[in-house]
């Protein structure tokens, strides 16, 4: 009994690590099985379009508003810095590079996690607790093909496109602050951008948004789909809310982590 003081934390550390490892393994298998559906027929085109509409079209307004304000604040901050060095002509370059390489992909991904990722996780979690996924299995409808694969495609298509929208609107938000308010020359704003934002910068942004979209859909659908296997799992509404919170946190952290890794590799 006296050993308990030392043993208990060790035991719980061991249990937590094992559970985490187990979940990682499950998520890995989940990802592989979901991706294998590329070869499964038929593709549920109607469901894919429905999901693209949900993830993509319905997020456009949020992304546009967010992009405008981010572009504006970036221009404001850079203007304030650049004006001290007398190089406000570089404003377009600074805004363009920071949006295309960093802020566009990351902020779009974070907004999509909050808007579509959490909803997707909750929806699939509810389907799991309500036996709807079992019902699909019993009707010989593969839930990976019918339920998950359309969502994978939808995120993969929508997130890079939304990132592009975010970037374009952000650049015009920057234009509004720089050119319309602070009277930086319009020619300088766009020319410096065209000179310094290279294809390699664009490809870094695109790579990021593709990787992020996969991370979001993987974590958000996987957490909901596998929620019945979690240790000490709770059924019903509380279980779904827990797993959704979990998915949002894990997805956000993974994106910031992946962002650093991709930047380090591609810079």
């Amino acid at each position: 009994m006296r050993m308990m003081g030392v043993r208990l934390p060790l035991i719980s550390l061991g249990q937590t690590s094992l559970a985490a490892l187990e979940e990682l393994g499950r998520m890995g298998i989940f990802f592989a099985v979901a991706m294998r559906q590329i070869f499964a027929r038929p593709w549920e085109l109607r469901l894919i379009l429905q999901q693209i509409r949900f993830v993509g079209a319905r997020s456009v307004v949020v992304i546009a508003v967010a992009g405008a304000f981010v572009g504006m604040v970036v221009a404001l901050q850079f203007y304030d810095t650049l004006v001290r060095f007398g190089s406000v002509s570089m404003l377009g370059s600074a805004v363009g590079l920071s949006l295309v390489r960093e802020l566009g992909p990351v902020l779009t991904a974070l907004i999509i996690i909050g808007r579509a990722g959490s909803a997707t996780c909750a929806e699939i979690g509810i389907m799991r607790t309500d036996n709807q996924i079992d019902a699909l299995e019993c009707m010989a409808v593969d839930p990976y093909r019918y339920l998950l694969f359309p969502r994978f495609i939808a995120f993969l298509v929508a997130v890079p496109l939304l990132t592009a929208i975010f970037n374009v609107i952000g650049i015009f938000g920057g234009w509004f602050v720089g050119v319309a308010i602070f009277k930086v020359s319009q020619g300088a704003y766009f020319q410096s951008m065209a000179d310094t934002v290279l294809v390699s910068d664009l490809s870094m942004g695109v790579t990021k948004s593709i990787v992020f979209s996969v991370l979001i859909v993987w974590i958000c659908t996987g957490k909901g789909f596998l929620m019945h296997l979690n240790q000490g799992m709770v059924f019903g509404a509380e279980g779904v809310s827990r797993v959704t919170t979990d998915a949002v946190v894990v997805a956000s952290i993974s994106i910031l982590f992946a962002d650093y890794i991709i930047s380090a590799l591609m810079l």
């Binding site: 509810i126 389907m127 309500d130 036996n131 709807q132 079992d134 019902a135 699909l136 019993c138 009707m139």
Partner: peptide, 11 residues
Amino acid sequence: GVAFQGGALIN
């Protein structure tokens, strides 16, 4: 065919 307790209709 399997009929589930709560129906399990796709909501």
